[in-house]
């Protein structure tokens, strides 16, 4: 027993602290259950992608994290404090941008920042700093109604940065932006994480967006966590169910060789041989095996489930259970 306690303590010390933790978070609007036992562990310093289709409960979760929706004690901890009792203390160290930023259109970008600065009591010099960070110094004195969508979004991030928070919560920050706007915002997010050490909690319904910057991610649907872990782990999970297509100098011999060696051949489509493979090493072994047997290999291509398909599969509950179960368990450590 003593030994267990000691190891547990040691484990705890070495573990990276979580900046956001939810424990069996449930929430309902009247009779409609929106969140069911949601478990999130956001490590400090991560860009945490929070992914789910529309209506999965992402916005509700974010509103809860920002103290806009009341939750009972013990379900949510941010910065190591219970949200129930420490709302203001937590919000002081958290910046947020929920969907469209709140901009007062009759005021200039600078005035919007100044107003926000007065409320969060940041030093005056901080305004120019954040303008610099988001690249709006030139347009600071234009009225925000003249701003493009991308500029508005960047100003929204500037507002969130004013109090120099350790944690940024961004809800669909690239929604409605054109490709260059999306790119600007994405680069900004990555820079904030790498240069300024901000932990970023980024929600999106677009996997392609999350994939490009997140270091960790959680996939939720219908208010429950479906996957949580790092991106490479998810890829690994995706690879486990992948299909290898090959072309050789003599497909008939190849087919025979493969079936004789217990490879799982899939129904042939046209001239292409398709084999079910479990991991990358197996691909290499298979290649060597064919060459050793005197065949020429012209093409080897893994048709990996791309992440988009995987995402759809996971959220539709159609993913191969065995393969995914493992990664989910691995991700939950």
């Amino acid at each position: 027993m003593l030994f267990f306690v000691a190891t547990y303590a040691a484990y705890h010390k070495t573990m990276k602290p979580f900046i956001i933790e939810t424990h069996g978070l449930s929430y309902s609007f009247g009779k409609r259950q929106v969140l069911q036992n949601l478990e999130l562990r956001v490590p400090q310093g991560a860009i945490f992608g929070f992914l789910g289709p529309n209506g999965a409960g992402k916005s509700t979760t974010i509103r809860i994290l920002l103290g806009l929706l009341p939750v009972p004690k013990g379900q949510v901890r941010v910065h190591g404090h219970d949200l129930h009792n420490n709302r203001i203390e937590i919000l002081r160290r958290t910046g947020s941008l929920i969907e469209m930023p709140t901009l007062y259109r009759h005021l200039s970008g600078h005035d919007n920042l100044e107003m926000h600065r007065r409320m969060v009591q940041a030093p005056k010099s901080r305004i120019n700093e954040v303008l610099q960070i988001v690249g709006l110094t030139q347009d600071a004195y234009r009225k925000t109604k003249e701003y493009s969508l991308g500029m508005s979004q960047r100003l929204g991030i500037a507002l969130a940065l004013l109090a120099d928070p350790e944690l940024l919560i961004l809800d669909e920050p690239t929604n409605g932006l054109d490709p260059s706007g999306i790119r600007e915002v994405r680069e900004l997010i990555i820079r904030l994480n790498r240069e300024f050490g901000k932990t970023i909690f980024l929600s999106s319904h677009l996997l392609s967006e999350i994939e490009k910057c997140a270091t960790e991610l959680a996939i939720i649907d219908k208010g429950a966590t479906l996957y949580q872990g790092s991106l490479p782990q998810l890829y690994q999970g995706a690879f486990q169910s992948s299909v290898l297509q090959l072309e050789t100098s003599n497909d008939a011999i190849a087919r025979k060789l493969l079936t004789d060696h217990q490879y799982e051949l899939l129904p042939q489509q046209g001239d292409v041989l398709a084999v079910q493979v479990q991991d990358r090493q197996q691909v290499a072994r298979l290649n060597r095996f064919l060459i050793v047997n005197g065949l020429e290999v012209y093409r080897l291509s893994t048709h990996t489930h791309n992440l988009e398909e995987l995402f759809l599969n996971i959220t539709k509950g159609e993913a191969e259970p065995a393969a995914l179960q493992e990664t989910i368990l691995a991700g939950k450590v």
Binding site: L66, G67, L68, I88, L91, S96, Y104, R105, M119
Partner: peptide
């Protein structure tokens, strides 16, 4: 209306202010 129009309530209430 300034707040209603610019979706400002959620923003105001997520500030570190009572």
């Amino acid at each position: 209306g300034i707040e209603h129009k610019s979706n400002g309530w959620k923003h105001l209430y997520s500030l570190p202010l009572p």
